[in-house]
Design a protein around this nucleic acid. Sequence first.
DNA 1: TTCCAAAACCATAACCGTTAGTGTTACGGT
DNA 2: ACCGTAACACTAACGGTTATGGTTTTGGAA
Lengths: 194, 194
Amino acid sequence: MTVPTTGRRERKKAATRQKIADTALRLFLERGYDAVGIRDVAAEADVAVTTLFSHFASKEALVFEQDENFEQRLTQAVTGRGPHEPLIPALRREIQAMVRHCTGDGAAPIYRMIDASRALREYEESMRLRHAESLATALVADPDLPQSETACRTIARFVIDAYALARDAADPDAALDEIFHMIEAAWEVTSPSS
Amino acid sequence: MTVPTTGRRERKKAATRQKIADTALRLFLERGYDAVGIRDVAAEADVAVTTLFSHFASKEALVFEQDENFEQRLTQAVTGRGPHEPLIPALRREIQAMVRHCTGDGAAPIYRMIDASRALREYEESMRLRHAESLATALVADPDLPQSETACRTIARFVIDAYALARDAADPDAALDEIFHMIEAAWEVTSPSS
DNA sequence: TTCCAAAACCATAACCGTTAGTGTTACGGT
DNA sequence: ACCGTAACACTAACGGTTATGGTTTTGGAA
């Protein structure tokens, strides 16, 4: 019965969440991630610490609030592609869009902050690992791909590597070209499993 | 000039370190990693908490005490290979040895414990990232490899992926065969950079 | 041999992210 | 109008980690 977005309560909840995220990002950019404590964020957003943690699982999650849909976009690039559309170019397109989003001017200060904090870098990497795993699951489940499970899992990790490598490269577009050329070659030598 | 392993002081320090590591591993295996606190380990090893942290950077580091030389072994597999020995098989041999070490009977309880703890799994992954970076540095610096920097960095990550994937696979040896076949293909399509 | 600087170690207390326990308020459905 | 519960609050704690400041041990020089 698809609850029809009931109303005030959910709006208030979303507002609280947004207020926390906005406050956190502002403070982090002003004073630096490590120099701002959870208690600072909670006080400034005028909520209790426990409330903050009921909206966000960890301090790091405050920073990656929006990027949580990367996971969906990747799996959709697999499941939602045309009937006979080849896999690798579809993944390549999606990764390229993600890289461009991160290296764009709007997100630049945020990613500078991430690079400056060890905790944030490690969190991002473990996020990527989750993405790789869900991508792997999608690949293994795809009936159009006769490759072995190992081959699918491998390609999933390679694709996530491409994102990480391109983001750090001097010329992200050129790096992505080169890396996906390698991925394509790796994919082509795989053989059907059964 | 190159202090010749001075003597008692260093021996005592090493003994303290070993005692801490042994005690920690014993307690972790007995009661479970998450059920043992740093203060427990310190008390049982009869040292102060601050002393423990002067030997180990974190609680997780207590578990991976010995495996810190993985990094050296990988870079040595690159720098120490024969004059015209091809790169990928050399790396493959080293990764295979590492995987066999981890999946061997002796290390089994430890790796079961690691898999059971989120904190340990994440720590191991960030360790691997470090390994990938130092391997990448070694590859970029090797004059026998005319490939581009991007290609070298990419292969470094792929090789570390191979380790992670094979370790989790049902049949590690077969998985390693398959993954390195893919890596070989990726490597062969790279072209000299300049 | 005696003495010194540094290294190793210790005890205490605190900091910070995170969680448990226990209410209180405000909303939505009946 | 009323009840169940979702959202929030407050306090206190837990556990990893670090700062502070002091004590012992050690290697080497005077």
